[in-house]
Simulated scan of single mutants.
Amino acid sequence: MKRAETVLFASSGLDRAAEMRRDEAVLKKALKDGAGVLPLWRGKPMLEGDFETGAVSPAFRPMGHPTLAKAREAPVFLGRDETAGPLFAVDISGWVPADVDEDQIGGFVDNTVQRHPSEEKTGAGFAELRRMMTGLSPRDAELVATARGLLEWHRTHPFCSRCGAASEMAEAGWHRACPSCGARHFPRTDPVVIMLITDGERVLVGRSPGWPERMYSLLAGFIEPGETVEGAIRREVMEEAGIEVGRVSYLSSQPWPFPASLMMGCRGEALSREITVDPEELEDARWVSRSEMLEVFAGRHPEIAPARKGAIAHFLLEHWLSDRLD
C-alpha cells in the first residue's frame, strides 16, 4: 500500500537515539539544560493550542516547572528531535485537580480538559488523546503516542513478574529492572489484526456491545500465541461473524497506545456471505456496499456513523472507497 505510512501515529522519522538511553550523564545534562518534558495526567497528555478546532501540540515544559512537581518517577526519554533536541515525558497523576468528572475520565468518550494551576496563563490542559489526535502533526503524534504507551506500561507493571518484588525504571524508561532477582522487563506491545473483509463491492463491519450509538468499525482481534497474522484474521472473522476468509494481504500498521497495541491492517477476501454473530463479541455485524459506505462517510446514513478519524479503520475504509489500497 503506497500510502501506508501516512496513517496517524505512524513513524515520523523520530530519532529514538537508543544509544542515549544508557548514558545517564548525557540525559541528566539535557534535563538540566532545559530539555522539554511532556507531562501526562492519567494517560492524558498536556496539550496547548485551540481545543475547539483541534489544532493543538504537546506542551513540553522544562524540569523544575511547577506543572511537573507531582512526577511519580524520573522522566522517560522519547528521542531526539532535529529542532527541539532531546525530549522526555513524565507521569504527574499524583496531582489532584480541583474538579474531576470521574464518569468521563477513562470512558469511551472523555470531553473534559484538566488544567494545572500553573498553566492558567498558557491555557494548556490535559485532554484525551483519542479526541484530539487528528489535530497533531505527524511528529507530535509519534511523540505523544510513545509517551502514553511507555508511561502506561510503567504504571501497570510496577512489580517483577518473575519474583513479585518491586521493579525499578532503567535505561531512561525503556525497561524495568528487578533488584531482587535481576530480571529485566521491556515495554509491552500487543499485536492486533484489524481486517478489511470484502465481498466484491461490499465490506464487513461490526459493533461491539457498549459502543456509542451508531458506531461501527472493521472487525479486529488479538493475535494469540503460536498464531500467524493470517491465521488470526481467519480465526477472528469466523469466531465473531461466522465468515470464512480466503486470501489475505497486508495493508498498513498503526501504533495504538490505548493502552499498548500495534494494529496490523490487512485485507481479506470472504469465501462465505451469511453472517452469524457471536453475541459475546459483537452486538451486530453487516455487509455494507460501497455506495452505502459513501453515505456513511458523508454523515447521511441513518444507522451507521463514520469510523473515528485517525483510527486505522477509518484510514483503510477511506482508501477502499477511493480505490487506493494498492
Rank of each mutant, 00 (worst) to 15 (best):
P138C: 06
A10H: 13
G200E: 14
S261N: 15
G125H: 04
R80W: 13
G206M: 05
D190L: 02
A98C: 00
R202W: 08
L38C: 01
R207K: 08
D278E: 15
A35P: 07
L40E: 05
P39W: 02
P62L: 12
I194C: 12
G226V: 00
M195R: 07
A147R: 08
I312F: 04
R273N: 06
M215L: 12
M132T: 07
E19H: 15
R21K: 06
E102Y: 14
W287R: 08
R290C: 01
V7F: 03
W41N: 08
D23E: 12
P259T: 04
A183R: 05
R324N: 14
E52S: 15
L251W: 03
Y216L: 00
G221N: 06
P62G: 06
A69D: 14
I312C: 02
M20T: 13
E48V: 15
G135L: 07
I92D: 01
R130T: 07
V76T: 09
V26P: 01
D99H: 06
S167Q: 12
E128N: 03
V205T: 10
I304H: 03
R247L: 01
P39D: 05
Q114H: 08
E240Y: 00
E120V: 11
W211M: 13
E283G: 15
K28P: 03
D326C: 03
M215N: 01
A147N: 08
K29S: 12
G106M: 12
A18N: 07
F77H: 04
P86F: 10
W287E: 09
R184T: 05
E281D: 00
M20C: 05
K28W: 15
D323Y: 05
S11Q: 08
R324F: 02
D101T: 01
R176V: 11
G43D: 04
S180R: 00
L68P: 12
E119T: 08
D99A: 12
E24M: 00
